[in-house]
Structure formats: structure tokens, C-alpha cells
Computed example of a mutant assay.
Amino acid sequence: MAFEPRWYQQEAIDAIYQYFSASQGNPLVCVSTGGGKSVIIADFIHGVLQHWPDQRFLILSHVKEIIEQNHE
């Protein structure tokens, strides 16, 4: 991607990959307000699609504005 994730964002992304390499199911990543959850999601999805382009994703939010911001 065109940006460099912060260290804790990269740790979260790495943890997701580690989870899927060892387990099946749905991992949960907790990041505080302003921690860049959208950046983590985008970077993870970008990496997955580079290796497995047929994957599909569903991103849910309880706030419409977050979805709109992420779409932009």
C-alpha cells in the first residue's frame, strides 16, 4: 500500500495472519478510538487480495458514517 502502518497496526495485521495460519474461525482485533482500525482492515484486505484474489469480505459497522468514510 502507499502508506506505512504504525507498529501496533502492523502487529495487529500480523496477528490476524498468525491466527489464520493456526486456527479456523473469526479473529477479534481490539483497537482503541483513533487507533486506525480502518487502516488495519484495509491493509489486511489488500494483502489477502494480492495472494488470494477471489476472496470476499464483508465489513460491518453500527455507524453509517464509518462505512462512508472507509468507502471514500
Rank of each mutant, 00 (worst) to 15 (best):
Met1Lys: 15
Met1Asn: 13
Met1Tyr: 08
Ala2Phe: 14
Ala2Thr: 09
Phe3Thr: 14
Phe3Arg: 12
Phe3Tyr: 11
Glu4Val: 15
Pro5Met: 05
Pro5Leu: 12
Arg6Phe: 12
Arg6His: 05
Arg6Gly: 00
Arg6Ser: 09
Arg6Leu: 09
Trp7Glu: 13
Trp7Leu: 12
Trp7Gly: 06
Tyr8Val: 06
Tyr8Arg: 11
Tyr8Phe: 15
Gln9Ser: 00
Gln9Val: 09
Gln9Cys: 00
Gln10Arg: 14
Gln10Thr: 11
Gln10Cys: 04
Glu11Cys: 07
Ala12Leu: 00
Ala12Ser: 15
Ile13Ala: 03
Asp14Ser: 02
Ala15Ser: 15
Ala15Phe: 09
Gln18Tyr: 10
Gln18Gly: 01
Tyr19Cys: 06
Tyr19Trp: 07
Phe20Lys: 07
Ser21Lys: 03
Ser21Ala: 13
Ser21Pro: 00
Ala22His: 08
Ser23Ala: 13
Ser23Asn: 13
Gln24Glu: 09
Gly25Arg: 05
Gly25Asp: 08
Gly25Pro: 09
Gly25Thr: 08
Pro27Leu: 05
Pro27Met: 03
Leu28Thr: 03
Leu28Cys: 05
Val29Met: 01
Val29Asp: 06
Val29Gln: 06
Val29Phe: 01
Val29Tyr: 01
Cys30Met: 08
Cys30Glu: 06
Val31Phe: 00
Val31Ile: 15
Ser32Phe: 00
Ser32Gln: 11
Thr33Ser: 03
Gly34Met: 03
Gly34Gln: 04
Gly35Leu: 00
Gly36Ala: 04
Lys37Asp: 07
Lys37Ala: 02
Lys37Phe: 03
Ser38Asp: 08
Ile40Asp: 01
Ile40Val: 10
Ile40Ala: 13
Ile40Cys: 01
Ile40Thr: 00
Ile41Cys: 10
Ile41Ala: 10
Ala42Ile: 07
Ala42Gly: 07
Ala42Thr: 07
Asp43Lys: 10
Asp43Asn: 13
Asp43Glu: 15
Asp43Phe: 01
Phe44His: 10
Phe44Ile: 03
Phe44Val: 07
Phe44Met: 04
Ile45Asp: 04
His46Asp: 10
Gly47Ile: 03
Gly47Pro: 00
Gly47Leu: 04
Val48Leu: 04
Val48Arg: 14
Val48Met: 04
His51Pro: 03
His51Gln: 15
His51Asn: 15
Trp52Glu: 13
Trp52Leu: 13
Trp52His: 14
Trp52Lys: 11
Pro53Asp: 05
Pro53Gln: 03
Pro53Arg: 04
Asp54Ala: 12
Gln55Val: 09
Arg56Ala: 14
Arg56His: 12
Leu58Phe: 09
Leu58Gln: 06
Leu58Ser: 06
Ile59Gly: 03
Leu60Asp: 04
Leu60Gly: 12
Ser61Gln: 01
Ser61Val: 07
His62Ser: 14
His62Pro: 11
His62Ile: 05
His62Arg: 13
Val63Asn: 15
Val63Thr: 14
Val63Ala: 09
Val63Asp: 10
Lys64Thr: 14
Lys64Val: 13
Lys64Gly: 09
Lys64Ala: 07
Lys64Ile: 12
Glu65Tyr: 04
Glu65Lys: 10
Ile66Asp: 06
Ile66Val: 12
Ile66Lys: 05
Glu68Cys: 08
Glu68Met: 03
Glu68Tyr: 05
Gln69Leu: 10
Gln69Val: 10
Asn70Glu: 05
His71Met: 15
His71Ile: 10
His71Thr: 11
Glu72Asn: 13
Glu72Leu: 12
Glu72Tyr: 11
